Simulated scan of single mutants.
Amino acid sequence: MPIAEIPLRAWRKRGQDFDFHGRTIRYWVAGQGEPLLLIHGFPTASWDWHYLWQALAQRYLVIACDMLGFGDSDKPLDHGYCLLEQADLQQTLLDHLCVDQPVHVLAHDYGDSVAQELLARHYEGRFRMASGVFLNGGLFPETHRPALVQKLLLSPLGWMIGRAFGRNALSKSFSQIFGPSTRPSESALDDYWSLISCNDGPRILHKLIAYIPQRRRLRERWVQAMQRGGVPLRMIDGEIDPISGAHMVERYQQLIPNADTVLLANIGHYPQVEAPVQVLKHYLAFRDRIGRPASQVAYS
């Protein structure tokens, strides 16, 4: 299935708004069929899915939003950002769209943690998840290796680091976490920075980064949910990502029964951007074989 890029300008025009506890959230919806919820990572936005969007929308009802504090959604300064609230946001969006079927989830990075919480809620009878696929993310805090800028944002001087974070710092950070042959163009970096910087985004980066200690506090709840095995799961991972690469897959295989994992050779932290054709292939293969156990590791 061909991959078609959606320029950021066109992507923004397709978005809609809804209210979440008095905050404006930007969201996108396309296609028809089984609902597929796409959950983006830190510090970017749902435009991360633009290479896959049209191909997925030919098969499914595809839904994504810029979470609170990200992209074109509101970024209140006087707010304590929380992964649990972001899971609430996803459920509120689904209610807004009158989605009442079990939901398939495809998540990345920060979004993996939101998906883990939704999975835990599934087993509590508070959400209905049909399947989950995780792209490079800190599923297990003990294996997550935060980048230097993330460590600095977590420090007492994090508010200063965030306000000083600019387009050049983003370029340097991305050059370290993308694959050597799949780094974003200067134009793409401009677009990423546009999403991060709008609505005074850099002033809240030190608040958003609170997800890292939140992951530690919620680890047991989330890992236990992943180990239950009632919801089909797959991990598709860029192998050379220094944050959550092959070492995260190894830990996944140690902890998750019948672990279904895919390693993408020479791909970094953003596989849906760096290798969208491969991600699409492996995602659709997963959907085609849902319900059948898989223990092998695939390389591509």
Rank of each mutant, 00 (worst) to 15 (best):
G179I: 13
G179C: 02
P180W: 09
P180S: 12
P180E: 13
P180C: 05
P180A: 09
P180T: 12
S181V: 06
S181C: 12
T182M: 03
T182Y: 10
R183K: 15
R183N: 05
R183C: 06
R183H: 11
R183P: 10
R183F: 04
R183I: 03
P184E: 12
S185K: 05
S185L: 09
S185R: 12
S185T: 14
S185E: 06
E186T: 14
E186A: 13
E186G: 14
E186N: 13
S187C: 09
S187Q: 14
A188I: 12
A188F: 11
L189H: 11
L189T: 12
D190H: 13
D190K: 15
D190P: 08
D190C: 12
D190R: 15
D190E: 15
D191V: 10
D191I: 07
D191H: 15
D191W: 10
Y192A: 01
W193N: 09
W193V: 03
W193A: 06
W193L: 09
S194D: 13
S194K: 14
S194P: 01
L195G: 06
L195A: 10
L195D: 02
L195Q: 11
I196S: 05
I196W: 08
S197W: 10
C198S: 11
C198D: 01
C198G: 02
N199F: 05
D200T: 09
D200A: 08
D200V: 06
D200M: 06
G201D: 04
G201P: 11
P202Y: 10
P202F: 13
P202N: 08
R203G: 05
R203V: 14
R203T: 15
R203E: 14
R203N: 09
R203F: 10
I204R: 08
I204V: 14
I204H: 06
I204S: 01
I204F: 04
L205V: 06
L205Q: 03
H206V: 07
H206G: 03
H206P: 05
K207R: 15
K207I: 10
L208E: 08
L208Y: 04
I209N: 02
I209D: 01
I209E: 04
I209K: 00
A210D: 02
A210N: 12
A210W: 00
Y211C: 03
Y211I: 02
Y211S: 00
Y211G: 00
I212F: 07
I212T: 00
P213T: 09
P213D: 01
P213R: 01
P213M: 08
R215P: 07
R216M: 12
R217T: 00
R217S: 10
L218S: 04
L218I: 04
R219A: 13
R219I: 01
R219G: 01
